[in-house]
Each structure stands twice: as structure tokens, then as C-alpha cells.
Amino acid sequence: MTDTTAGGDVRLSGISKTYGSFTAVHPLDLTVPQGSFFALLGASGCGKTTTLRMIAGLEDPTTGTVFLGEQDVTALPPYKRPVNTVFQSYALFPHLTIHENVAFGLRRRGIRSVKKQVGEMLDLVQLGDKAQRKPHQLSGGQQQRVAVARALINHPRVLLLDEPLGALDLKLRRQMQLELKRIQTEVGITFVHVTHDQEEAMTMADTVAVMNGGRVEQLGPPAELYERPQTTFVANFLGTSNLIEAEVVTNGGGEIVVTAGDARLRLPAERCATSPSPGSRLLVGVRPEKISLVHADDAGGVADGRNRFTGTIADSSFIGVSTQYRIDSAVSPELEVYVQNVERDTRLVPGAEVVLHWNPEHTFGLDAAQSVLAGTVGSAGVATDPEAA
């Protein structure tokens, strides 16, 4: 087989997949840098798993080319591609020990002396002392680490992970997120990870591609996607966003000024996905945790230069680390504000008049032609066709 050490990344050129009249993945160009942890993130039916399966060779693309390094592997069957896949179902052999499960790929290739390699791989996933146990004697997280070790021992160019943590409970999933990131950092192999879990993608990945309806909505580092979403879908799908419908007053000097209800708000032009002209409409976004909340009696203490307006607390929910408030105002109905439970103000109860304020630098702008509901649970912006999962 052709050496793939040059480049070493995954490159998709014009890749698409259709099933009859349904398009699961629209023509897509995507490059995964060598040695990176790359996540394909999206709701069920967005095309992320289909894309992963085309990289693995488990699905034939309708159009386009799959490159691994400099090699065109589009026509190669899965077993001839320098990739291994880890699925949600661990697919371990129940009758074999952990040692033999990990050794399986090496033995199938005719390698006889496997003890040292298997031992090193089990040490990597911190299961060296479990080598002689059977899969049913391990926890779900431990079984998943065995599946990763079994895939990595073949020294693939790329490790593909298809919802690998989906069967684990929340606490174990969070532990495994850190484990997988540690393993990827140690081995330096390119990981391509499919998930519908936003927190999982942002915790583990260097780069995230947010998919929707068979297309990549936005691609970039997790912090950039969160702080500077380019579409309402990304703004809503990655966490929660308050999207305020506003009218542009001025756009110049690196700053955009808008009016919304009875408020005048500012945002940096560089944080706006469009370049709006005065008189046009704009969606102004701010994350709930960026907003500060004070009782109306303390409004005089709000610093000058902040974006601010008044509202009424409609509802509040105590969730331990923070209290989540829902605010009604003339600016926008049902704004969400998250306040850390450090020094709780007992006056902040439903019915109280409050002032919301935040740093204009934390504001972003989006094209107002989009639906403000795109990316929210149950919205039309989330595809649901099972073949595009």
C-alpha cells in the first residue's frame, strides 16, 4: 500500500452522499489537520455519521474524493485504509481476555510476539492490571478504553470515533472525555470524533465542524464557535444564546450601534457575521452568563459604557452552581440570564424590576434573515432523517 506519512491528514474534496431523492451530505470540502482532535458535531440526522463512514470506507460517496495524507483512498475497501473505527457498542469479544482482545488485530496480521505491544497499549489506557479479565468484568468506561487500545495497536493513520461515549452515564462520560483527550495527546494520532453532545465536542476537540442538514455550518476552535457564531443555528446549538431583534443606527469606526425596544446597544464590528447598513435589521446576540443582573434600586452602580436595559424577572430556577433567570422586557421577551451563586441577592425574585448589563465586547451580531429558533430543540433547523445520522 502507498505510504501515507506525507501530510497525514484527512482531506475530503467535494464529498456528498445521496439516498434516492434524499441528500444526506451535500458536497463538502473538509481538511482535518494531522495529529489533531477533530469533532463532527450535530443533531441526529445532520450527516455527521455518514461523513465518518465515508472516511472509513463503510459508505461509498456519491461524488467526491477521500484523501488520507496524499493518497486517494476513495476506491479502497475499509480494511485497506490506514484507519480504525471505535463505535458506541464496544464490540469486544466476550470469550477473550482483555489482553487477547487488544492483541486480536496483531495476531490477524500474523504477528506472533505481541506481549510487549499489548502491555504498552494497556498501560496507555491505564488498564495494565486488567489484562487477564474478561470484558464483562469491566465497567463501561473500561470496556471503551479496551476498544480504543485495540484500535490504536494497529497504528492507524487516523482513529475514527462514532459516538464512543454515548452508552455511558453522565459522570463516566465526563471522565472518559478527559481520558480520550489524554490518550490522543500522548499518541499524537489524528482523531475524528462524531458526537451530538456539544459539551463533549468542546471539551475534547481542537477543531469542531458544526453540521446541519448535511452541510458544515461553521468550522473552528471551540472557543471561537462559542464566542463568535456565524449563524443562529451555531449560536443556539452550542449552548444558549439571547438573540435580540434590533435596528442598526450606525456602522463605523469598528463599532455598530443598534436600537432594540427602548435600549441603545453597541457591539464590535469584528464580532458581526454581516456588515449591516444603517436602517437595516440585525440580530444582536449575548450569552446568558455574560449578562449581569442587579435590582432596579441599585441601577446607579452600573458602570458607564455597558450595554444595559431594564426588565422584570418572570421566573427563576436554582440549579446549584448558578441561578437561571428568565427576564421579560421591552427589548426582548424571555431573555435568559445565568448568575453564579456567590452572593445571592434575595430581592431577585419573580416580579422584581431589574437592570441587565454587560460588556459590549461580549456581544455578537447575526444576519436577521435567519430564524432565531434555528438550532433549538424541536426547531425546523435540525434534520431528522435517520439515514443522515
Results as ranks from 00 to 15, higher is better:
297 D>L: 08
61 P>R: 05
286 V>L: 10
79 Y>R: 09
311 G>E: 15
82 P>Y: 00
263 A>F: 14
92 L>P: 06
181 K>Q: 13
363 T>M: 13
36 S>L: 00
170 L>D: 02
216 V>L: 00
16 S>C: 10
358 W>G: 05
227 E>N: 11
107 R>S: 11
374 A>M: 05
126 Q>H: 15
382 V>D: 00
57 G>C: 09
62 T>W: 07
36 S>F: 02
26 H>V: 01
313 I>V: 15
155 H>R: 15
320 G>I: 09
92 L>N: 13
224 E>C: 02
328 D>M: 07
252 G>D: 14
296 A>Q: 05
371 S>N: 09
329 S>H: 00
368 A>T: 06
384 T>Q: 07
288 P>S: 05
214 G>W: 01
133 R>F: 06
333 P>M: 04
385 D>M: 01
198 Q>N: 07
211 M>C: 04
163 E>Y: 00
219 L>I: 06
5 T>F: 06
33 P>F: 15
65 T>K: 03
86 V>T: 06
343 E>N: 14
322 S>E: 15
315 D>N: 13
302 V>A: 04
156 P>V: 12
363 T>I: 10
326 R>D: 06
261 G>I: 07
114 V>N: 12
307 N>H: 09
142 Q>V: 13
54 M>P: 04
24 A>E: 06
291 I>K: 02
228 R>G: 01
15 I>G: 06
136 H>Y: 13
9 D>M: 09
363 T>S: 15
74 T>K: 08
205 A>D: 01
275 S>N: 14
258 V>Q: 11
263 A>L: 14
96 L>V: 01
368 A>H: 10
118 V>L: 07
151 A>Y: 10
348 L>K: 07
292 S>K: 12
278 P>H: 13
227 E>I: 01
118 V>H: 03
283 L>K: 10
167 A>R: 11
11 R>T: 11
365 G>K: 10
220 G>C: 03
116 K>M: 00
176 M>E: 03
91 A>V: 02
377 V>E: 08
203 T>P: 02
243 L>Y: 08
51 T>H: 09
255 E>P: 00
125 V>L: 04
256 I>Q: 10
179 E>I: 07
299 A>P: 07
152 L>Y: 09
250 T>S: 15
